[in-house]
Amino acid sequence: MDKELLELEAELKRLRPVLPSRELTAAIGRDLAAPPVRRNFWAWAALPLAAVAAGVLLLQPTPKLAPTPAVAQATPVAPVTPVAKFKPVSAENVLYAQSDDGLVTLADGTTALRYRSSYVDTITWKNPNTQASLRWSVPRTEERVVPVSFQ
Protein backbone atom coordinates (compact mmCIF):
# COMPACT_ATOMS: atom_id res chain seq x y z
CA MET A 1 0.00 0.00 0.00
CA ASP A 2 1.19 3.50 -0.72
CA LYS A 3 1.97 6.03 1.98
CA GLU A 4 -1.33 7.85 1.58
CA LEU A 5 -3.33 4.68 2.19
CA LEU A 6 -1.20 3.84 5.22
CA GLU A 7 -1.91 7.30 6.64
CA LEU A 8 -5.62 6.82 6.02
CA GLU A 9 -5.45 3.42 7.72
CA ALA A 10 -3.76 5.00 10.74
CA GLU A 11 -6.38 7.75 10.84
CA LEU A 12 -9.20 5.19 10.80
CA LYS A 13 -7.59 3.26 13.65
CA ARG A 14 -7.65 6.40 15.77
CA LEU A 15 -11.44 6.63 15.50
CA ARG A 16 -13.11 5.01 18.48
CA PRO A 17 -16.46 3.25 17.94
CA VAL A 18 -19.27 4.63 20.08
CA LEU A 19 -19.79 2.92 23.43
CA PRO A 20 -22.73 0.56 23.81
CA SER A 21 -25.65 2.19 25.59
CA ARG A 22 -26.26 1.66 29.28
CA GLU A 23 -29.52 -0.01 28.35
CA LEU A 24 -27.65 -2.63 26.33
CA THR A 25 -25.21 -3.34 29.16
CA ALA A 26 -28.10 -3.56 31.62
CA ALA A 27 -30.01 -5.92 29.32
CA ILE A 28 -26.98 -8.22 29.05
CA GLY A 29 -26.62 -8.13 32.83
CA ARG A 30 -30.26 -9.14 33.23
CA ASP A 31 -29.89 -11.98 30.72
CA LEU A 32 -26.76 -13.32 32.39
CA ALA A 33 -28.30 -13.04 35.84
CA ALA A 34 -31.36 -15.04 34.79
CA PRO A 35 -31.12 -18.83 34.88
CA PRO A 36 -30.32 -20.26 31.44
CA VAL A 37 -33.29 -21.35 29.36
CA ARG A 38 -34.04 -25.04 29.35
CA ARG A 39 -31.97 -26.79 26.74
CA ASN A 40 -31.92 -30.34 25.55
CA PHE A 41 -28.42 -29.76 24.25
CA TRP A 42 -26.57 -32.55 26.06
CA ALA A 43 -29.12 -35.16 25.14
CA TRP A 44 -28.35 -34.37 21.51
CA ALA A 45 -24.69 -33.77 22.08
CA ALA A 46 -23.61 -37.01 23.72
CA LEU A 47 -23.30 -39.06 20.54
CA PRO A 48 -21.71 -36.36 18.34
CA LEU A 49 -19.26 -35.54 21.13
CA ALA A 50 -18.16 -39.14 21.25
CA ALA A 51 -17.83 -39.10 17.46
CA VAL A 52 -15.75 -35.93 17.58
CA ALA A 53 -13.44 -37.39 20.21
CA ALA A 54 -12.99 -40.51 18.13
CA GLY A 55 -12.43 -38.42 14.99
CA VAL A 56 -9.77 -36.28 16.64
CA LEU A 57 -7.91 -39.34 17.83
CA LEU A 58 -8.11 -40.93 14.38
CA LEU A 59 -6.78 -37.79 12.71
CA GLN A 60 -3.58 -37.92 14.73
CA PRO A 61 -0.65 -39.62 12.98
CA THR A 62 0.11 -42.99 14.43
CA PRO A 63 3.47 -42.84 16.20
CA LYS A 64 5.98 -45.15 14.63
CA LEU A 65 7.72 -47.25 17.20
CA ALA A 66 11.33 -47.68 16.29
CA PRO A 67 13.49 -50.11 18.18
CA THR A 68 15.35 -48.12 20.77
CA PRO A 69 18.05 -49.07 23.18
CA ALA A 70 17.10 -49.81 26.76
CA VAL A 71 18.66 -46.58 27.93
CA ALA A 72 16.37 -44.53 25.72
CA GLN A 73 13.31 -46.28 27.12
CA ALA A 74 14.18 -44.97 30.53
CA THR A 75 13.85 -41.35 29.31
CA PRO A 76 10.61 -39.79 30.56
CA VAL A 77 8.17 -39.19 27.72
CA ALA A 78 5.98 -36.08 27.67
CA PRO A 79 2.27 -36.90 27.72
CA VAL A 80 0.65 -36.72 24.29
CA THR A 81 -2.26 -34.27 24.09
CA PRO A 82 -3.50 -34.55 20.51
CA VAL A 83 -6.71 -32.57 21.08
CA ALA A 84 -4.71 -29.49 22.07
CA LYS A 85 -3.43 -29.22 18.49
CA PHE A 86 -6.92 -28.34 17.26
CA LYS A 87 -8.18 -24.89 18.09
CA PRO A 88 -11.75 -23.69 17.60
CA VAL A 89 -11.92 -21.13 14.80
CA SER A 90 -15.64 -20.57 14.50
CA ALA A 91 -18.84 -21.31 16.35
CA GLU A 92 -22.10 -20.76 14.51
CA ASN A 93 -25.71 -21.06 15.55
CA VAL A 94 -28.09 -21.31 12.62
CA LEU A 95 -31.72 -20.63 13.48
CA TYR A 96 -33.94 -22.79 11.29
CA ALA A 97 -37.31 -22.73 13.02
CA GLN A 98 -39.24 -20.71 15.55
CA SER A 99 -42.63 -21.26 17.09
CA ASP A 100 -44.85 -19.49 19.56
CA ASP A 101 -46.66 -21.82 21.95
CA GLY A 102 -48.75 -18.95 23.28
CA LEU A 103 -49.90 -18.84 26.89
CA VAL A 104 -48.92 -21.82 29.04
CA THR A 105 -49.24 -22.56 32.74
CA LEU A 106 -45.98 -23.48 34.44
CA ALA A 107 -45.62 -26.08 37.20
CA ASP A 108 -45.85 -23.41 39.90
CA GLY A 109 -49.09 -22.05 38.45
CA THR A 110 -47.49 -19.03 36.79
CA THR A 111 -48.91 -18.01 33.45
CA ALA A 112 -46.27 -17.41 30.82
CA LEU A 113 -45.65 -17.06 27.11
CA ARG A 114 -43.46 -19.79 25.66
CA TYR A 115 -41.33 -19.51 22.51
CA ARG A 116 -39.26 -22.26 20.94
CA SER A 117 -36.24 -21.69 18.71
CA SER A 118 -34.50 -24.53 16.90
CA TYR A 119 -30.86 -24.13 15.97
CA VAL A 120 -28.05 -26.10 14.44
CA ASP A 121 -24.84 -25.30 16.32
CA THR A 122 -21.67 -25.82 14.35
CA ILE A 123 -18.22 -25.58 15.85
CA THR A 124 -15.13 -25.81 13.68
CA TRP A 125 -11.69 -26.70 14.96
CA LYS A 126 -8.54 -26.30 12.93
CA ASN A 127 -5.03 -27.58 13.36
CA PRO A 128 -2.81 -24.65 12.36
CA ASN A 129 0.12 -26.97 11.68
CA THR A 130 -1.57 -29.35 9.27
CA GLN A 131 -4.59 -27.21 8.22
CA ALA A 132 -6.77 -30.21 9.07
CA SER A 133 -10.19 -29.11 10.22
CA LEU A 134 -12.96 -30.74 12.12
CA ARG A 135 -16.58 -29.58 12.07
CA TRP A 136 -19.19 -30.60 14.61
CA SER A 137 -22.89 -29.83 14.10
CA VAL A 138 -25.63 -30.57 16.56
CA PRO A 139 -29.32 -29.59 16.67
CA ARG A 140 -30.49 -27.65 19.70
CA THR A 141 -33.86 -26.37 20.86
CA GLU A 142 -34.21 -23.39 23.17
CA GLU A 143 -37.37 -22.64 25.08
CA ARG A 144 -37.83 -19.09 26.23
CA VAL A 145 -40.46 -18.57 28.91
CA VAL A 146 -41.68 -15.06 29.64
CA PRO A 147 -43.93 -14.75 32.70
CA VAL A 148 -46.97 -12.53 32.15
CA SER A 149 -49.23 -10.79 34.61
CA PHE A 150 -52.80 -9.66 34.08
CA GLN A 151 -53.93 -6.43 35.65
Binding site: L24, A27, D31, K87, P88, V89, A91, I123
Partner: peptide, 22 residues
Protein backbone atom coordinates in the same frame (compact mmCIF):
# COMPACT_ATOMS: atom_id res chain seq x y z
CA UNK B 1 -27.44 -4.07 16.24
CA UNK B 2 -27.87 -3.85 20.01
CA UNK B 3 -30.26 -6.81 19.98
CA UNK B 4 -27.75 -8.80 17.96
CA UNK B 5 -24.85 -7.95 20.27
CA UNK B 6 -26.94 -8.81 23.33
CA UNK B 7 -27.97 -12.19 21.94
CA UNK B 8 -24.50 -13.05 20.67
CA UNK B 9 -22.68 -11.92 23.79
CA UNK B 10 -24.95 -13.79 26.20
CA UNK B 11 -24.69 -16.92 24.08
CA UNK B 12 -20.92 -16.60 23.90
CA UNK B 13 -20.45 -15.91 27.59
CA UNK B 14 -22.61 -18.81 28.65
CA UNK B 15 -21.65 -21.46 26.15
CA UNK B 16 -18.60 -20.62 24.07
CA UNK B 17 -15.98 -18.77 26.10
CA UNK B 18 -14.62 -21.98 27.60
CA UNK B 19 -13.83 -23.34 24.14
CA UNK B 20 -10.42 -21.71 24.22
CA UNK B 21 -8.71 -20.41 21.11
CA UNK B 22 -9.58 -16.94 19.88
Amino acid sequence: AEDVVQEAFVRFWRHQRKLGGE
